[in-house]
Design a protein around this nucleic acid. Structure first.
Lengths: 195, 195
DNA sequence: GACGCATATGCGTCAATGTGCATATGGGGT
DNA sequence: ACCCCATATGCACATTGACGCATATGCGTC
């Protein structure tokens, strides 16, 4: 029930609607836990049935009414006890690395194109994290409750930078294969590959 | 059907039994795609039904007979066409980061313990990758077909090192919170945290 | 006026995954 | 004798996930 716990984690901050949760999962917390709004609404019903959250309808004009969900004491306790349990090791699932694993039985060109798309993606992410870090955590003091978010951001930033760098190398390496049959050991990244 | 494709990727190298595949998924390819033997056997049946692989029973004495699966031409083509499609962005799901996200509503001690376990895990992994790199890819020439595995290893090594370093920082930061109420901005990692 | 977009909530279906359990045998430790 | 481990295969059930679709309204734009 990890999605449920991720939702509870969001609601520890302040009450939210499913729509707001969906937006949160599309930005901050979504960087390490992906879902869509359908799954969120489904999970919200379940959490409500278990008494972990409470819905309160807010009438709106011009927009559909919304359901603001608040954490109950039981919900807060449930999150706390979940958080105290050892975490399950992060699951990694990356299509692209599977393709690279069997590179000998695949076509190079589409994989190289894939890598170039990834490079852009990771660069964007890195910039985004950097901006958030500079804006919200401008290297002063950090409230203890926000320390985790800061740590997450730092991990994210380093991860994106590292992967982007790797993408550059990988693109160079694949170009070497498709251009000539023979392959030199990897050169340091040339920094001009994607221009 | 991504697990199926990962299995096909393994079988492009040489025929294998479900048991051998399970071991492979527990080591090399499992570093970026996790499963267990149950899922592998189930997927093997499906791949066989679709004609992508062919099973051949090998009678053994003292052990249960085994089923060696070979890629059919159709299977090889299926893998190739899958590999040519753009990859779906890697899904990230990490419990620990969810816990950190809502650190203010959780107990610090078990999370710090978790981080210490992770630190050890990532250090082990880094060492393991390093050993494989030095053993199999001792910086000479690389066959084009093996380039992908080399790239994967390099990514893995950097990833493990980076995360291990981050774990050290995170442990230091959490100790600062639980020891005193106030929190300084993160110090550069001390490199002496873990003995 | 038709169309897309943002707001806001949800259902239904099928594929993929995770978890527990079952079965069969031989070898090594206690 | 008993138990655990390695070898080797697999079923059944439950949860999660992906994807399409539905509904309702107001605003801007073509």
């Amino acid at each position: 029930m990890a999605l449920g716990d991720a939702i509870l984690a969001c609601l520890t901050e302040h009450p939210m609607t499913g729509y707001e949760l969906a937006k949160t999962f599309d930005s901050s917390i979504g960087f390490f836990w992906k879902t869509d709004h359908q799954q969120i609404y489904r999970e919200l019903s379940r959490l409500r049935d278990r008494g972990y959250i409470q819905g309160r309808e807010v009438v709106q004009t011009g927009k559909p009414n919304k359901l603001v969900y608040t954490l109950t004491p039981e919900g807060r306790a449930a999150f706390r006890s979940w958080a105290a349990r050892p975490s399950t090791p992060a699951s990694v699932k990356d299509d692209l690395l599977v393709r690279l694993y069997a590179l000998g039985a695949a076509d190079i060109a589409p994989i190289r194109a894939d890598l170039m798309a990834r490079l852009e993606h990771h660069r964007d992410r890195a910039e985004r994290y950097d901006r958030i870090l500079k804006k919200h955590y401008a290297d002063g003091s950090v409230a203890p409750a926000d320390m985790g978010k800061l740590l997450n951001l730092r991990l994210g930033l380093r991860h994106e930078r590292m992967v982007a760098e790797w993408c550059e190398e990988a693109i160079t390496a694949l170009s070497a294969i498709s251009n000539s049959g023979s392959v030199r050991p990897l050169d340091p990244p040339s920094r001009e590959t994607a221009g």
